[in-house]
Write a protein that binds this DNA or RNA. Structure first.
Length: 481
RNA sequence: GGCCCCAUCGUCUAGGGGUUAGGACACCAGAUUUUCAUUCUGGUAACCGGGGUUCGAAUCCCCGUGGGGCUACCA
């Protein structure tokens, strides 16, 4: 039997890290089992759902390459894939539940319910909906609804006893029916409520495994009861631990970026994000933590997922990012990095350097940066105009007269071939060290500052060779001149 | 408040009765480098507390404590 996994976000906010992690685990399992991964948009809350959030969700999935076999975008045999477009389907099952006596109309107003809650609070008892319309005559209820009265539909839950549910990650979990109460299947505006819609959809879409956040665990008894009332076979469930902020509370904006696309903008690679997220709550056998997607699929299994919450650590993500940047092929690196380089900068580079030199510059960058966004800073030294260079030099308080060997350096540069190499530069630098008797540091550092205006940066010989004879002599002239 | 879930270095985790409690990130130190970064080597650092069970508990059980989730006409 093919497994069918679903990712069921509600478009009430941008794609969140926790939501994405749920998507990833579903996707990984589907890939591993050569099954189907589908995306269903749970937009039954008309007030909070927005099209732009749905866009955000798909934008994030696309960035990470988590492709959907079925979704509102690509369609599929089990659509529609937006709950807002499935009203007719839900109505069929609502009718069925009314006829079979599992569902009943409830005319309690929000004020009535609030009063019930207050009362329970005063009596220091746990609040459970009273079920006061539970045994109301159906004919009478239908008449009132026909007459235009507002009502919700509630599900008749068992009122006593316990239910034990099985979770792939947590094992057996037992709940007490007396504490659950009759929940809402359909709101008074006719839209289906979550615990009902999700069951109908999972059943009709032939979902075999539901992997979702731990926050859904306590909904299990309700959903299982609906599965049973409707005569559907429930799927298997796995509830993932929550992703937490540094203070161990639920991850939220005050912990930094939670919107997935922000990580793209900050220069993270999707490979690193995927790998890191997979490590949150799960460890592959063997202790290898850096696993590319294909290895992740191979190694993944639901029952190895652990059950305690995990703090999101951007430092480890960053480390992985550096690792994945280094793993890229030279051409792939260039493709990834181009969107992070302003066109003016790019044009300047192309003016100043030939293809081979550009490749060298890119190679230097790839070997050392952690985020793609570091590119702009990294490239500064190669494209700096003389005026900006001089300003920086002044700011550093550089005194050419203290560096007597600069004229020696000028002589040697003058004698260099126009197309000198980093190796050639190394030779003359070492000559200067030998001839002046100064240490390497006493020579290299001042030359770096004098020629680039920076105190640190990529390999000095490479930088000087790339800047070229003309640039060096011009700047030396400005200094000593 | 009630119900449910959870608890090993700062963080992610391995380990599921006998281990010098292992790894990764971070951190610190050293090496490499003219330098930042990268890279390499080494180091510091943990079983929440209390009771049981057992010859023996980080591991099994109970209680506590702490954290989280749910307790909506949100999902």
């Amino acid at each position: 039997m093919t497994v069918r996994l679903r990712f069921a976000p509600s478009p009430t906010g941008n794609l969140h890290l926790g939501t994405l992690r749920a998507a990833l685990f579903n996707w990984l399992y589907a890939q591993k089992k050569k099954g189907v991964f589908l995306c269903r948009i749970e937009d039954t809350d008309l007030q909070r759902s927005e099209a732009r959030f749905e866009d955000s969700i798909f934008e994030g999935l696309a960035w990470l390459g988590l492709t959907c076999d079925e979704s509102p975008m690509v369609g599929g045999d089990f659509g529609p894939y937006r709950q807002s477009e499935r009203r007719g389907i839900y109505q069929t099952y609502i009718d069925q539940l009314i006829e079979s006596g599992y569902a009943y109309y409830c005319f309690a107003t929000p004020e009535d319910l609030e009063a019930e809650r207050e009362e329970a609070k005063k009596a220091k008892k746990p609040y459970v909906y009273s079920g006061k319309y539970r045994d109301y005559f159906l004919d009478e209820a239908k008449q009132r609804v026909q007459a235009g009265e507002k009502a919700v539909l509630r599900f008749k839950m068992p009122q006593s006893g316990t239910v034990t549910v099985h979770d792939l990650i947590r094992g057996e979990v037992t709940f007490d029916y007396a504490l659950i109460g009759d929940f809402i299947l359909q709101k008074s505006d006719g839209t289906p409520a979550f615990n009902f819609a999700v069951v109908v959809d999972d059943a009709l879409m032939n979902i075999t495994h539901v992997i979702r956040g731990e926050d859904h665990l306590s909904n299990m008894p309700r959903q299982l009861a609906v599965f049973e009332a409707l005569g559907f076979e429930p799927p298997q469930f796995a509830h993932l631990p929550m992703i937490l902020g540094a203070d161990k509370s639920k991850l939220s904006k005050r912990h930094g970026a939670t919107n997935v696309i922000e990580y793209k903008e900050q220069g993270f690679l999707p490979e690193a994000m995927l790998n890191y997220l997979a490590l949150l709550g799960w460890t592959p056998f063997g202790g290898h933590e850096k696993l590319p997607l294909q290895d992740l699929i191979q190694a993944f299994d639901i029952d190895q997922v652990n059950s305690s919450g995990a703090v999101f650590d951007v430092k480890k993500l960053s480390w992985l990012n550096g690792q994945y940047i280094r793993d890229l092929s030279a051409t792939d690196f260039q493709h990834r990095v181009v969107p992070f380089i302003a066109t003016t900068v790019m044009n300047k580079l192309k003016d100043l350097y030939n293809d081979l030199q550009l490749q060298q510059i890119m190679g230097l960058a790839q070997a050392s940066i952690t985020f793609l966004t570091e590119m702009e800073d990294f490239l500064q030294v190669f494209i700096e105009e003389d005026r900006a260079y001089q300003q920086r030099l002044n700011a550093l308080g550089f005194k050419p007269e203290e560096q007597a060997f600069l004229s020696l350096f000028t002589q040697k540069v003058t004698g260099l071939d126009a197309a000198f190499s980093a190796q050639d530069m190394k030779v003359i630098l070492e000559e200067i060290v030998a001839e002046t008797g100064l240490g390497k540091g006493k020579v290299f550092r001042p030359i770096r500052i004098a020629m680039t205006g920076f105190q640190s940066g990529p390999d000095l010989m490479q930088v000087l060779a790339l800047l070229g004879k003309g640039c060096l002599l011009r700047r030396l002239g400005m200094l000593i001149g």
